[in-house]
Simulated assay, not measured.
Amino acid sequence: MLAAFASCSTEPAVTDNSKTPEARFLEAQLKNVPKFGFMIGHHDDPVYGIGWEGDSARSDIKSVCGDYPAVMSFDLGHIELGGEMNLDKVPFDRIRKETVAQYERGGIVSFSWHADNPLTGKDSWDVSDSTVVKSVLPGGANHEKFMGWLDAVADFFNSIRTADGVKVPVLFRPWHEHTGSWFWWGQNLCSADEYKRLWEMTYSRMQEKGASQLLYAYSPGTEPQDSAAYLERYPGDSIIDLIGVDGYQFDRDAYLKSMNGVLRVMQQVSVSHQKPMAVTETGYETIPDSVWWTQTLLPLAEKYPVSYVLFWRNARERENHFYAPYPGHASEADFVKFYESPKTLFLNDFNKINFNNTNENEEL
Rank of each mutant, 00 (worst) to 15 (best):
Y203M: 01
E302T: 14
M72T: 12
F350H: 09
D116W: 10
W185E: 05
G283R: 03
S181F: 12
D55N: 13
V309M: 07
W312H: 10
V71N: 03
Y248F: 15
W149T: 07
H321C: 09
R197A: 15
K337D: 14
Y203C: 00
V269I: 14
I243Y: 06
F156E: 05
E285F: 00
A23R: 06
R96P: 02
H273W: 06
E362H: 03
T344E: 00
G328Y: 09
E27C: 00
A301P: 02
R197Q: 15
C190M: 03
E53F: 03
K35H: 15
P325W: 03
K134H: 07
L345I: 13
E317N: 14
L242P: 01
V47S: 07
K122E: 08
K35I: 02
E200M: 12
W113T: 05
E11G: 11
T99Y: 04
D88S: 10
M1S: 10
F92R: 07
P288G: 00
T15Y: 05
N32V: 12
V132Y: 03
P325Y: 01
K97S: 12
I79M: 05
D334C: 08
G210N: 12
D45N: 13
N356D: 15
S124Y: 12
Y216R: 06
S73F: 01
E200I: 08
F250R: 13
T179E: 12
